[in-house]
């Protein structure tokens, strides 16, 4: 049987909550992968609110990640404020209070880089709206390890800097609107990972 995508990692910063809500709202109840999200946030203790906000708009359960929690399909995990979120080779999540990366903790690069080494070609990485360049190294690593990479179309992003930085850093597979990203993810259960790496910018075939 052909290999299927196992995990989706998403990174978002300024304007990210509404972008995430738009995508998550489109995921089906039987979504066959886990979703792990880093959304930059300044204040600690805001996680509960964010998970509730997104949970109300998404058919899947949305929760803050707990250390050593096993990743499960059909669940959306949110990096807690003030911690880096990483994926272990055992398929569990782990946290760290190492110094901020790109002035951010949680950092998108930290999540993406660890997920890339664990999931390889079974990983999808998505960079959304944001005012900095966090995630640009991570998305390149996902690409290097055979994963599928997407960014929100800069023309649509509330703040285009982060998608643009990702596109500058890596040969991104697809540049899509939020609605298209949601549509693509909805279909991943039916589409095995392509044998050959997808061509860059093949947005029309999705």
């Amino acid at each position: 049987m052909a290999e299927l995508y196992r995990t989706v990692v998403m990174g978002a910063s300024a304007g990210g909550m509404s972008a995430l809500a738009t995508i998550l709202a489109r995921l089906p109840k039987d979504f066959p992968a886990s979703v792990v999200i880093v959304q930059h946030v300044k204040e600690e203790g805001t996680d509960g609110y964010r998970a509730v906000f997104l949970g109300k708009r998404c058919p899947l359960p949305v929760k803050e990640a707990i250390d050593k929690e096993p990743l499960k399909r059909g669940i959306v995990y949110l990096a807690p404020a003030g911690y880096h979120l990483l994926v272990e080779e055992t398929g569990t999540l782990s946290l760290s209070v190492d110094p901020p990366v790109n002035f951010s903790r949680p950092s998108i690069d930290v999540l993406f880089e660890s997920a890339a080494t664990v999931f390889g070609e079974r990983l999808i990485g998505v960079i959304l709206t944001g005012a900095n360049s966090d995630g640009s190294h991570g998305i390149r690593k996902i690409k290097e390890y055979g994963g599928y990479t997407m960014v929100q179309a800069p023309s649509e992003a509330e703040v285009p800097a982060m998608p643009l930085a990702a596109m500058e850093s890596a040969d991104i597979d697809a540049v899509l609107t939020l609605a298209e990203i949601g549509g693509f993810l909805t279909g991943i259960g039916d589409h095995p990972i392509p044998e050959a790496p997808a061509m860059p910018h093949q947005t029309t075939t999705i």
């Binding site: 990483l86 080779e89 782990s94 760290s96 190492d98 660890s114």
Partner: peptide, 9 residues
């Protein structure tokens, strides 16, 4: 030690 953070270090 958890390997993901260790790998970064």
């Amino acid at each position: 030690y958890a390997r993901a953070s260790l790998a970064r270090r």
